[in-house]
Design a protein around this nucleic acid. Structure first.
Length: 189
DNA sequence: GTCCTGATCCTCT
DNA sequence: GAGGATCAGGACG
């Protein structure tokens, strides 16, 4: 376990791996909630599965901006997913956060998720958004500025698994998904 | 405009 | 393991 001095967001693949072990913190009226990032996926504009593949649009324009901002999108008519923008300005890429290990505010998460099961709070991209109280209002938030929604350094995990992504139809052969081995809060092995 | 699809989750069998 | 919920963005004309 090594202390992370800084986060490399110059490339989504590097960032997806580097984000594992970092803590995502959100302070709301209900209190503070946070969790360790245990599962991520990388997306880039050369990648047919990425929202940025077909170029810049009103929805995904934040992906083409500077790194370190929140890209939140709505899908399947009922779910939001949370991404961290990476790469240089002008290059559309981001890292999808797929799962967290709950740390602070677990009682708040249970209330938001309407469940008592601790291992069912944040083990999926739409679940963690709900558990953390993230909304579309957080679109474009600067995660590195120490604001209410932010990233905090954690510890680098020892065992990281690299594999294929989940829930996509294009570019399914790319092994752009990373998760911490043996972590019970990973959405799927 | 209209149509279709989706980086999902939950509730059933 | 399968299917439904439910709506915004994007493609097309």
């Amino acid at each position: 376990m090594n202390q992370n001095a800084s986060l490399d967001l110059t490339d989504s693949l590097i960032a997806a791996k580097g984000l594992l072990g970092w803590e995502l913190v959100h302070e709301t009226q209900d209190g503070k909630s946070s969790g360790i990032i245990v599962e991520t996926e990388a997306y880039s504009q050369e990648d047919a599965a990425s929202h940025s593949f077909r170029g810049i649009t009103e929805r995904n324009k934040i992906m083409f901006g500077a790194a370190g901002f929140a890209y939140i999108y709505f899908t399947y008519g009922m779910h939001y997913c949370f991404n961290i923008v990476t790469g240089p300005a002008g290059h559309g890429q981001a890292v999808l956060i797929r799962a967290l290990e709950p740390i602070d505010g677990i009682a708040i998460m249970k209330k938001r998720r309407r469940t008592e099961e601790a291992n069912n709070l944040t083990n999926g991209p739409a679940k963690l958004v709900q558990a953390m109280g993230i909304t579309k209002l957080d679109y474009g938030a600067n995660l590195l500025s120490g604001d209410k929604l932010r990233l905090e350094p954690g510890t680098t995990p020892n065992n990281v698994i690299q594999t294929t992504r989940i829930g996509i139809k294009n570019a399914v052969n790319k092994r752009w998904r990373f998760y911490i081995a043996d972590n019970p809060f990973v959405s799927k092995k």
